[in-house]
Simulated scan of single mutants.
Amino acid sequence: MLTLYTPEDYKRVLEAALLTASGPLPLPELKRLFDEEFDDDTLRALLADLKADWSPRGVELAQLASGWRFQTRPEYQAHLDRLKNEKAPKYSRAVMETLAIIAYRQPVTRGDIEDIRGVAVSPNILKTLEARDWIDCVGHRDAPGRPALYATTRKFLDDLGLRSLSELPPLADMEASMENRDVTDAAAQQEI
């Protein structure tokens, strides 16, 4: 076993663990890498140093909702996508609207979603989001029928590269974006 003496030695162990991990690693799991006891601040300082070491590269160390991971910098992702044979899944507008409602208003019931969207929510929409592990049932409302309450998951935050829901764009920006998209879609329809 390697003897660790310097902060550089500790950072190399963290780097090896994070580069080989299949998913984000939380602080308690990272602490298990060492015989020494580290407080959270010391470990965060080592991670911050490691993040700075990687700053000029195409890969970055990122803190997400469920822990730390190395990931491709966004500006290089388009190039890497050329190597993929599979296409990213496309989601319908109804799926994306439902996800946005859950993300911004959680916890919500299916009825809440229907009230906001103004249309019935297909069970397949919720199943799609649950299968992707972006939403989960987090309880039941104390109301007749005890409807399920839905909320987003840590995987949702991780997949979006967020640490918390507070990092979501402001709702007003989302609504303006959707209105602009509607205007663009309508103009495109008129040209056809």
Rank of each mutant, 00 (worst) to 15 (best):
P56V: 05
D39Y: 09
S122F: 01
A48W: 10
K90L: 14
R32D: 03
R117C: 04
G58V: 11
R141C: 03
E60N: 04
E130P: 01
D49S: 15
L99C: 06
S122Q: 09
A21T: 06
L50K: 02
Y150Q: 02
L43E: 01
K87T: 11
P107Y: 11
Q106M: 07
S92I: 03
K127H: 12
L46G: 02
L149K: 10
P144G: 03
E60M: 09
P147V: 08
K51Y: 00
F38C: 02
Y150V: 00
A62M: 11
L149M: 08
L30N: 03
F34L: 09
A148C: 07
N85F: 10
Y76A: 10
E75L: 09
L18S: 04
D40W: 05
P123C: 03
V138G: 04
K87Q: 12
P123Q: 09
L129M: 06
Q63H: 14
V59N: 01
G145Y: 11
A21L: 05
S55L: 09
D115F: 10
R117E: 09
K51E: 12
E114T: 02
I135N: 09
F34R: 12
C137M: 04
P24N: 07
T42F: 01
D112E: 11
T42D: 08
L27H: 07
L80A: 11
F34M: 10
I113R: 07
L64T: 10
A21Q: 07
K87R: 15
A148T: 01
D81M: 06
P28D: 05
R69K: 14
R57G: 11
T153Q: 09
G58T: 13
R57W: 07
Y104K: 02
T20W: 06
W68K: 05
A120K: 15
T20I: 00
R93K: 12
V119A: 14
V138H: 08
E114A: 13
N124V: 10
Q106D: 01
D133T: 12
S92T: 15
L27D: 00
E29R: 15
T42S: 12
Q71D: 14
S92F: 02
L129K: 08
T72F: 12
L46S: 07
G118I: 06
L25S: 07
V119P: 00
